[in-house]
Amino acid sequence: MKTDHTGEPPDFYIGWQEKAPPTYARPVRWVVLLLVVLVPAMACLLVWQQRGFSDAVFEYGQLTMLEGQLIREPVPFLRVPVKNSPPDAPLFERILLIGYGKHGAEATIRQWEARYGSLHNKKIGVRGTLIYHEGHAALELTEEASACRTVAPLPPSLAIPTTQSLGEVTLQGEITDPKCFLGVMKPGDGRPHRACAVRCIAGGIPPLLWVRNGKGRENGYVLVGPNGERINDQILKAVGQNVRVRGRLGQADNWLILYVDAPTELTRLRADVLAQIALCQ
């Protein structure tokens, strides 16, 4: 910058004047030019460098009608008969039922029962919004009390469901809330989403342990207590974190249920432990 013998610049900038003197206008023009380059570059870089988002689907605004048997335990499902399955070995697929907002389905089911009486051993028609990802499907009861559209006696073809025991397992993964993780939010896991997952699970949505092998294989396991009781409140501190869980694995049609041995003893995996194990591997 040009200055006189005392080190003062010859020009002086006053904001309320019509024009800035060239001494001041020129560097500011360069700053604006720099920003014109920097701003789009930052936008591109920040978008490009994201880790990506899952292909999970939430059919927002699109209601789907499903018919099947209402399962209450250990968590609410709609058990839907698979079309064209052989009568001697009928197939069923389960759709996890989830309430509106960050709530489980129980309160809504109670509303249905208040209107229609006990839904035990009934075939119901439910309308809601589908959520699905990686072979797991859930139905948000968007219309809440009005979501239950039909109630009919259960036909004999809908056999009494059983849960097949698959033995003791130890699983490691992140505790997620299936509503967000299976499609409502993206990302529906990890640190930024943790508070939301806590809210959803505190609101009664069954916790889902999501296990990954890092090479594209993933699976989810609904977490319940040793006797199928809900453990949402006990695991809130571990939600959104990497944990190691031991328990009895059960298969309920196309869903896997993990009956956790001692939910209060979920091992939260610390980053340094993770790093050590990763190094050993």
């Binding site: 907002g101 960050k102 709530h103 939010m185 989403h193 939301c196 809210r199 959803c200 505190a202 609101g203």
Partner: peptide, 9 residues
């Protein structure tokens, strides 16, 4: 709105 509304608190 995304993370904290429509919950139990």
């Amino acid at each position: 709105l995304q993370f904290h509304t429509r919950g139990d608190v």
